[in-house]
Amino acid sequence: TRVETATETAWISLVTALHLVLGLSAVLGLLLLRWQFPAHYRRLRHALW
């Protein structure tokens, strides 16, 4: 049971790290898009909202 718990903890930390990385890359990508294509971003936002 001790090994299982350790594996579970490792998986949880791995998944958390993955989610953090994905979230950060998504935010960075959005910022980059907004910085590179302001007109396109505004049009996209206008279409979405």
Rank of each mutant, 00 (worst) to 15 (best):
T1R: 07
T1H: 10
T1W: 09
T1F: 11
T1S: 10
T1L: 12
T1P: 02
R2F: 15
R2W: 14
R2N: 12
V3A: 03
V3F: 01
V3L: 09
V3S: 04
V3D: 03
V3W: 01
V3K: 02
V3E: 00
V3G: 02
E4N: 05
E4D: 12
E4A: 11
E4S: 08
T5M: 03
T5N: 03
T5D: 04
T5V: 03
T5E: 04
T5H: 03
A6C: 00
A6T: 10
A6E: 02
A6H: 02
A6V: 02
A6F: 10
A6Y: 00
T7P: 15
T7K: 09
T7E: 08
T7Y: 11
T7F: 03
E8D: 11
E8T: 03
E8R: 01
T9C: 09
T9L: 11
T9Y: 07
T9H: 06
T9P: 14
A10R: 05
A10F: 01
A10Q: 13
A10E: 13
A10K: 08
W11D: 00
W11V: 10
W11Y: 14
W11A: 04
I12K: 07
I12F: 06
S13R: 09
S13K: 04
S13H: 05
S13P: 03
L14Q: 04
L14S: 04
L14F: 07
V15C: 03
V15P: 05
V15G: 01
T16P: 01
T16R: 07
T16E: 04
T16D: 06
T16Q: 08
A17H: 00
A17L: 09
A17C: 10
L18M: 09
L18T: 10
L18D: 00
H19L: 12
H19K: 02
H19C: 15
H19M: 12
H19F: 15
H19S: 15
L20Q: 05
L20S: 08
L20Y: 01
L20F: 11
V21R: 03
V21P: 00
V21H: 07
V21S: 12
V21I: 10
L22R: 03
L22Y: 10
L22P: 07
L22T: 08
L22A: 13
G23L: 15
G23K: 04
G23I: 14
G23T: 09
G23R: 00
G23D: 03
L24T: 00
L24H: 01
L24V: 05
L24G: 05
L24D: 05
L24I: 11
S25L: 08
S25I: 06
S25M: 05
A26K: 03
A26V: 11
A26F: 13
V27Q: 00
V27K: 03
V27Y: 12
V27M: 09
V27R: 02
V27E: 01
L28N: 01
L28S: 02
L28M: 15
L28P: 02
L28T: 02
L28W: 04
G29A: 11
G29K: 03
G29T: 12
L30D: 00
L30N: 01
L30F: 14
L30Y: 09
L30A: 13
L30W: 08
L30I: 10
L31M: 11
L31R: 04
L31S: 09
L31Q: 10
L31K: 01
L31W: 13
L31N: 07
L32N: 05
L32H: 04
L32P: 08
L32M: 10
L33D: 05
L33N: 00
L33C: 15
L33G: 08
L33M: 13
R34T: 07
R34S: 06
R34Q: 06
R34E: 09
R34F: 03
R34C: 05
R34M: 05
R34Y: 06
W35Y: 15
W35P: 14
W35G: 08
W35K: 15
W35V: 14
W35H: 14
Q36W: 09
Q36I: 13
Q36A: 13
Q36N: 13
Q36S: 12
Q36Y: 11
Q36P: 00
F37D: 09
P38K: 12
P38A: 14
A39R: 12
A39M: 12
A39F: 11
A39K: 13
A39C: 05
A39N: 13
H40C: 15
H40N: 09
H40T: 09
H40D: 11
Y41I: 14
Y41R: 02
Y41S: 12
Y41G: 06
Y41H: 07
Y41V: 15
Y41F: 15
R42W: 08
R42A: 13
R42I: 05
R42C: 09
R43W: 10
R43C: 12
R43D: 04
R43V: 10
L44Q: 04
L44D: 00
L44F: 11
L44N: 05
L44A: 13
L44K: 00
L44G: 03
L44H: 02
R45A: 12
R45Y: 11
R45Q: 04
H46V: 08
A47K: 11
A47I: 07
A47H: 11
A47Y: 13
A47D: 07
L48S: 04
W49A: 01
